[in-house]
Structures are given as C-alpha cells and as structure tokens.
C-alpha cells in the first residue's frame, strides 16, 4: 500500500496542479469578463442585461431598420435620455415575425413596413395604435448589363414582368419580411406566379440575399439602406426610380394590452411618441447622409408632436 502511494505521488501532484489550473482559468475568465463588461457598460447591468432598470420594453423591428443603425444610433439613445428608467430590448426580425410577436403579446411595440399586413393586424385588434413614422423607396437591383431590360421600364410591375418574361434569375427573401411581402405584391400586380429555376428564395436577411444575388448576378428587391451600405462590394446597380409603387412605409404599432396584460403599453406609447416627435423626425431626415451621401429615410409622421 505504501508503495502504491509513493509511485503515484508525482502524478498525483501534476493532476492536482492541472485541476487547479483549470479551476483558476475558468474563475479568472468569468471574473475578468464579469468585471470588464460591468465597467464597460457603466454599472452593474453587465450580467443581468440590466435588472437595474425597473421597466422593460420589447421593441420588435425589421432587420433593415436595425441594420441601418437608425434605432441603435439615433432613436434608442434619445429614448434612453427621455425615459432612463425603461430598458429597451430591440429584437430584429422580419415584419411578419414582428407582428406575430405582437399577436402573442411577446413584444410591446413594433416598427414594421408591411402596410397590408399591418392593416390586418389592426383590424383584428392586436394593436391599439398605428402611426406612420418614415418612408423611403425599395429598389430593384440587378447586373449592370441588365439582360431583362428593367432599366427601360416605367413602373415596378413592368419591371417585374420584364424579369419574368426574360426568365432572368430573381432572388427572393422568402422570409415573410416587409420586403418579401412587397415583392410578392409586385408579382401579383404584374400577373406573374413566380416559380421555376429562375426564382430562388433565400429565407435570409437582406444582406445575405444581396450577396447571393450578386454571386448569381440576378435581380432582387431591396431596401435602399442595406443596398447602400454594401454597394462597394456589389456588382449590382439600382435599375428603378423612386416611384410610388416602390414606396416603403414604416409604421409604429402599439400592441394591445387588453389582450395581453403583460404588455408594457405605457412604455410603448412613450416610444411611439418619441418616434413621431419633431426631434426624431428632424434627425431622421438627415440620417445616413454623412455616410452614404443621401438620407436613408424621409420623415413621414402625419401629425408632428412636440
């Protein structure tokens, strides 16, 4: 027995040392990260994601709005200044999914761009208030040599028809987003049932869809913001003008608290108020100009508040 103990003594030490190292490393990692992010985020809310704030507001918005940086850079800082007690959780999903979250009461306020679906949403009483916020234009982009001749058409429906007639590749989001809904509406208006090898659905966001379109040198419908932010890396050009049938309207919707008592309707109202306020509407008119040489949105609140 003694003998067994002495021969294993050496490796016992190394085992203990290694175990210690693992524990220490994990602890250091956890502590360092914990302290670090606490310091970075300015006070205690690192780990919990902010249990310091009393009020939580879940904002479901479209990926294009989040990706443009509009919310994170402009709206949320302003909201945080006005309502520091409310913590906003910005969840980026497609317009369809955002409204589905609203239906279930999983979100308090929505910023979406899918007018027909929004009207349906309001008609079914899932929302208590819907206000116009901003407007811009979708664009059909495609290869510079434009084999379908989209550049020569005078309306979006004519453009879609030209793409279908020439059997050029069209890349669809296919994700029930506002952009996807708009695209399907255009096909319907053009009297085309998109199908076959020249129509593919990515099921992904605008950025990925633009990249796929670029690789395959096809056509797609895009919001302007995402296209402009990627323009330098794409061999795709805008082929349509800013016509009414490509208008893209963004609205804010307050989810119905009567259906779901957990909905933070008061916070949602304050958020909607801010979006249509003169402060945000004025800032909106300029947003993106510095980076892209043109604003990404036009203010569209019908009745300007304070």
């Amino acid at each position: 027995m003694r003998q067994a103990g002495s021969t294993t003594g050496h490796s016992r030490w190394s085992a203990a040392a290694a175990a210690l190292i693992v524990v220490a490393l994990t602890l250091v990692m956890v502590l360092a990260a914990g302290c670090g992010s606490e310091a970075d985020e300015g006070g205690g809310e690192a780990a919990s994601g902010g249990q310091v704030k009393a009020d939580q507001l879940i904002l479901a918005t479209t990926t294009s709005v989040k990706d443009s940086g509009l919310m994170d850079d402009l709206v949320l800082p302003a909201f945080n200044e006005a309502q520091p007690q409310i913590e906003v959780k910005l969840i980026a999903v497609g317009s369809g999914e955002a409204m589905a979250m609203g239906e279930r009461g999983e979100a308090d306020v929505l910023v979406v761009h899918s007018p027909a679906a929004e009207e349906e949403f309001m008609a079914q009483d899932y929302g208590t208030l819907r206000l116009p916020v901003a407007r811009n234009y979708f664009a059909i982009v495609g290869p510079a040599d434009d084999p379908a001749g989209v550049g020569g058409t005078d309306s979006a429906t004519a453009a879609m028809k030209a793409i279908a007639d020439s059997e050029s590749l069209f890349v669809s989001r296919g994700d029930d987003s506002g952009t996807n809904t708009k695209e399907l509406g255009l096909w319907e208006a053009a009297g085309v049932e998109p199908s076959g090898d020249s129509y593919i659905e990515t099921g992904q966001g605008m950025g990925e869809t633009l990249r796929i379109t670029n690789e395959k040198q096809g056509y797609t419908l895009t919001d302007l913001g995402t296209y402009l932010s990627m323009k330098d890396d794409l061999d795709l050009v805008v082929l349509t003008k800013e016509s009414d049938d490509l208008a893209n309207y963004y609205s804010v919707i307050i989810v119905n608290q009567n259906l779901h008592p957990t909905v933070n309707a008061a916070g949602a109202e304050q958020f909607a108020d801010l979006l249509v306020s003169r402060q945000i509407q004025d800032a909106l008119a300029d947003y993106g100009r510095a980076e892209f040489g043109q604003p990404l949105f036009a203010p569209n609140a019908s009745a300007l508040g304070r």
Binding site: G34, D40, A46
Partner: peptide, 12 residues
C-alpha cells in the same frame, strides 16, 4: 471588446 467579454462571460 465588450462583445468578446460578454461571450466569455456567458460561455464561461
């Protein structure tokens, strides 16, 4: 850095 530390914190 903040994103990296958060990843480490959560996964750690």
């Amino acid at each position: 850095y903040q994103i990296m530390l958060r990843s480490l914190w959560v996964s750690g």
